[in-house]
Simulated assay, not measured.
Amino acid sequence: MIDSQLPLSLLAAVLAALLSAVLILLTRPLLLRHALANPNARSSHRIPTPQGAGIGVIAATLIVAGAVIILAGAKDASIPIAVFAATLFIAAVGLADDVRYIPVLPRLVLQGLAVAAVIFAAPNDLRIIPACPLWIERVLSLLAGLWFVNLVNFMDGLDLMTVAEAVPITAAVVLLGWLGGAATSTTIVAAALCGAMLGFAPFNRPVAKIFLGDVGSLPIGLLLGWLLLQLAWHQQFAAALLLPLYYLADATATLFRRLVRREPFWAAHRTHYYQRATDNGFTVWRVVGEVFALNLVLAALAVASTRMQQVSLQVMLLALGGIAVALVMRRFSQQRTSSK
């Protein structure tokens, strides 16, 4: 398994990185004219900046992943057609929202259709909790997937933040594939997305020359959610929770806090922990660096959890991950004292 997946994954990552960078270079002049992101209450940038680099990232991911999966020709390397189609659809929704605003409710309905296509196209024997009725599990998975897609979008509010999240998650899935814990097609898609994000990173480093836009953050959320769902369907629950734990904790805690305060949770804001960190004196590089380091720790815990049979040990690793996330969020929420 390692021998067959290693060269394919490396090939997918390298090709996707190169294609992503080329497509971003080619599309940026057009996006400068038609898709500028103006600063608002949520923004960390101060000048209008083009958005839409997700076009290059997603195109590179799907083109390269599809080509390498076909090249693989293995029994477990069939192209997940529903996932690719849903990714293109939700990317189109995101692009429309980038160029011309789509109201909240229609946007959620369209996103829900994309998530539903991924969830309900899966074979009935792929189950998270076999004792639970299938329709209940699929509906709950739909709601969770819709939330995950949106939280990735919510958290894409700082230069390199989505890179710091997506690269460790996808790299961990690739590693699990090499260890025999993921199908070839899953591993290749993860490798392609990882490479495409690395190709995007130089353009998004502070101060960013271009943003992903909803055309990038929404389909990236869908693809990451599908990868995590693959782990859950194969009974790797701890890994599926550990890998996105910082995003889950920050976005969910922020949502509940805004609901308790009766704030319009759908409106732009700067109350995520990573945003509060920049307001509290942390540089952008410091914030994304700490998030990236935290995600590497979570990825290591996730991979370790798949090698353990005892549920108690997996719970212990989850607890360790939760403590690490809580410490970083607490640190971000406090004013940074300057050292002299």
Rank of each mutant, 00 (worst) to 15 (best):
V115L: 05
L229N: 02
L222F: 11
A201W: 07
A131C: 03
L198P: 08
I188A: 01
R100D: 12
L146S: 10
C132F: 07
L113F: 15
W226V: 07
L198E: 05
L198N: 09
A201E: 01
Q230A: 14
W147F: 05
Q111A: 09
G195F: 15
T187I: 01
R205F: 06
L158V: 07
L160C: 07
V167A: 05
L176P: 09
P168N: 10
M155T: 04
V93P: 10
A196S: 15
N150Y: 11
V207Q: 07
S141W: 04
M155N: 09
A164W: 06
P168A: 13
G199A: 11
L126D: 12
L193F: 00
W135N: 03
R100A: 12
V167D: 04
L224Q: 10
A121T: 12
G177N: 01
L179W: 03
W147R: 03
T162A: 13
V99F: 14
Q230I: 13
V207P: 09
A122F: 04
G225T: 02
A182R: 07
M197I: 09
A164R: 06
L142Y: 05
L134E: 09
V152M: 11
I90Q: 04
N124E: 13
G145K: 11
A91F: 00
D214G: 06
P106Q: 06
A191D: 04
A116I: 12
R100E: 15
L224S: 11
V115T: 10
G216N: 00
A85K: 10
L146R: 09
I129K: 05
A85Q: 13
A121K: 05
A85G: 12
L151Y: 02
A183I: 00
G112Y: 14
V99W: 09
L227T: 15
A196Q: 06
N204P: 01
L142E: 03
G195H: 15
L95P: 14
A201Y: 00
L224C: 15
L222K: 12
D214W: 05
G177A: 01
L227H: 12
L143Y: 11
V99M: 14
A171R: 08
P130M: 04
A144C: 13
L198A: 11
V167M: 08
L105I: 15
V109Q: 09
F148S: 07
N204M: 02
E137P: 10
L105C: 02
K209W: 02
V189M: 02
L110D: 07
